[in-house]
Design a protein around this nucleic acid. Sequence first.
DNA 1: CTCCAAATTATTAACCTTAATGTAACACTG
DNA 2: CAGTGTTACATTAAGGTTAATAATTTGGAG
Lengths: 343, 343
Amino acid sequence: MGNGPVQRPTLKDIAQKTGYSINTVSRALRNMPDIAVETRERIREVAREMGYHNNALASSLRLGRTNTIAVIIPDISNLFYAFALVEIERGAREQGYSTILLNTSESGAFEQNAIKTALQKNVDGIIFGPAQQSLDNTRMLMGSGTPFVQFARHFESVNADFCVGDDKLGGYQATAHLIEKGHRNILLLNGLAAHNSSARDRQAGYRAAHEAAGLPVQPDLVREVSILAGDVGQQLMGMLRQRPDITAVFAYSDLVALSAMAHLQQNGVRVPQDISIVGFDYIQSCINLPVPLTTVDIKIREMAAAALKCLLEKIAGPDSSKVVCQKFTRTELVPGATVQDIN
Amino acid sequence: MGNGPVQRPTLKDIAQKTGYSINTVSRALRNMPDIAVETRERIREVAREMGYHNNALASSLRLGRTNTIAVIIPDISNLFYAFALVEIERGAREQGYSTILLNTSESGAFEQNAIKTALQKNVDGIIFGPAQQSLDNTRMLMGSGTPFVQFARHFESVNADFCVGDDKLGGYQATAHLIEKGHRNILLLNGLAAHNSSARDRQAGYRAAHEAAGLPVQPDLVREVSILAGDVGQQLMGMLRQRPDITAVFAYSDLVALSAMAHLQQNGVRVPQDISIVGFDYIQSCINLPVPLTTVDIKIREMAAAALKCLLEKIAGPDSSKVVCQKFTRTELVPGATVQDIN
DNA sequence: CTCCAAATTATTAACCTTAATGTAACACTG
DNA sequence: CAGTGTTACATTAAGGTTAATAATTTGGAG
C-alpha cells in the first residue's frame, strides 16, 4: 500500500480515540491523581495498543529539563576513559539520565564546540574531562550556568567541582615502590606537564618520594612523551643509551608503560630482569595483560561514580554555582610482575 | 547580589531588544534570504552580545529532527566497541550529529530499554550493535520506523541493513594460518555461538579451513567461553590437560586471547614455544601490547565508518524501510609473535 | 498620481507536552 | 435547600522555534 512512514501517536491521537481531553490522557499515562480508575486503565490500554511513548522533546521543552547529561572527554579509545564512561553511563541510566558523548581528541577547539553542543542540547549537567590547555573552555563552562564536574584533570585556578585521582599520592607510591626495591636511577616518562595537572602532580609525587628517601632528583631523568605522537619508544631508547645506569621506568600511564614494554621487547631488553616498569591507571581492571603490570590503581570506577554523584547533586540542588565536591580519590599500588627487586 | 541562575536568552529577548519580530530574528540568525543586510548584522550583533545560542529542543520539536543518533552497543569497555565508538562519534559530529550512548551490558532487557529511550528522545537514527539473544528487540526496532543499522553482529532472519566483519573469512584466515604453520590440533575458544552470529561465522571459517586442508574437524576442540563470566582460564587449562596434543589456540577475540595468555603464563606454559595463539579484532590498532599478538584485523574503523555512512544515507533518504547496505568488511590476518612454525 | 512588483517585516499557527485554572456533577452538612 | 466540598474531567496557556501566510513599505513604470 505504501502508507508511508507511520507517524508516532501523540496524546492528541489517544485523546481523540478515547474521547477524553489531552490533559486527562497525559495525567492518566503519568499516573497522576484525580482520575477515575477505569478511565485511567482504559486510556493506558489504548496507549499501549497504539504504541504510544512519550515525546521527550516536547516534555523537556515544557519541563525545562532533559534528563540528559553530556560527557566531554579527550579520548574514548583510551581505556581509562572508556571504563569511566561505562560507569558514568550506567549510573546515569539507573538514575533516569541519558548520556550524550562528546569526544574532544585532546583538542581545545573541539572541546569548545562540544561545550556549545551540550549547552544547545540543554543537557542538565556535564561531566567534563578537560583536554589539555582548556582553561578558557572551563571558564566558559563556569559562565554557562549549567552544572558540571571536572573529571580526571582539573584546574587549580578555577574554583569548581572536581573528582580526580590523587595523582601526587600515586606518583609517590609508584616511585617509593621502585626505590624500596633498590632502584636509584628511575626514569619518569611523564605526560605533558605544562598543560596537564595529572602529569604535574605525578611528577610532584615522584619528587616527593625521592626526597623522602633522601635521594636526589635527577632532572635529566624526567622526560615528557605523548602516546598520540608515538614518541615513547624513541625517547625511552634514547635515554637508555645516554644513561645505561637506569634500572627502572615510572610511566605516566599504563598505555605508556605498554608502549615502553613493546619497544624494550623489540630491542631485546627484558622486563623486569633488565628494566623494571611501573605504570599508572590499572587498566587491568578491564583488560587482561599477558604479564601483570605493576601499576597504580587510580580507582576509575570510584572516581567516575563520585563525579556522577556530585553532578546529580548539583543538578538537584538549588544553586548550581555552589561547589559541592572537590575530591581526590585515593590511589593504591598494585604489585605485578614488572618490577625486579635489586636489593 | 544573588541574582539567581541567569536564564538563557531566547529569540523573543533579542526581538524585544532590537525591535524586530521573532521571526525576523530567527531568519537573521539562520542567514535566510529576504532580510536587509544591515538588519541581519544588527540582529546578529545583539545576539552575540547577549550570548544567544539556539535552543535545540524547541528547534527539534518544530523541525521533526534532532540531529542526534543513538549508539546502542553491548560493552563500551571492550576495546572493539570503544574504538568503533570513537569513529562513529567523530564521523557523526563532522556531519552535525550528536551521539547518545547506550550501553546494554549484553542484556536483552537493558537493550529493550535502550531502544525505548532512543525512540523517546526522537533520535534520527540508531547504530545498533545487538546484544546476544536480542532478535525480538531487533524486530521491535524494525517496527519503530526509525532508521537503524546493525553493527558488528546481525540477524540473518531479519532483512535489514548491517555492517559486520566477514567473520567466516576471518575465522578461515586465522585457522588456515595455524594449519600452514604445521598445527593440527587447534583449540577454538569461541564465543557463545547460540546467540552470536560472529561466533557462529568464525566457527564456520574454522571448519572451512580444516576442510580446505583436508583435515578433520574435531568437535571436542571447539569450546565456548565468556569473558564476562571469566571462565577462559578454566576451560583452557582443562582442555590442555585432556588433550596435551593441542599446539594452538584460535581465540574468539583478542580479549579472550589475552586472557588465555595470562593464564598460560601463570601455569608456566610459554607462548608461542609451547602453545601458539591467534586472536581476533586487532585491538593493537589502539593499544600497544608487550608482545605483538597474531590476530585478524576486522577493520573496526572501516566497519564503523561504513555503518555510519549507511545510517546517514537512510536518514537522508525518503524511505527508511528500504535496505541500503548489507556489508561484510573484509578481514585480514596480521602476523605477530604468538604463532610458532612447527613444520 | 496610480498601480504593480519587489523587498522587507510582521502575524499566526504548529510541533507535543505539562501546569494552572476552570467547570460540571454530585454528595453531604446544617 | 442554600452552601460547601469533592470528584472527575476540560480548557487555556506556556515552553522556544520555524514555516506559511499576511501586511507594509519602497521603487519604478505608465
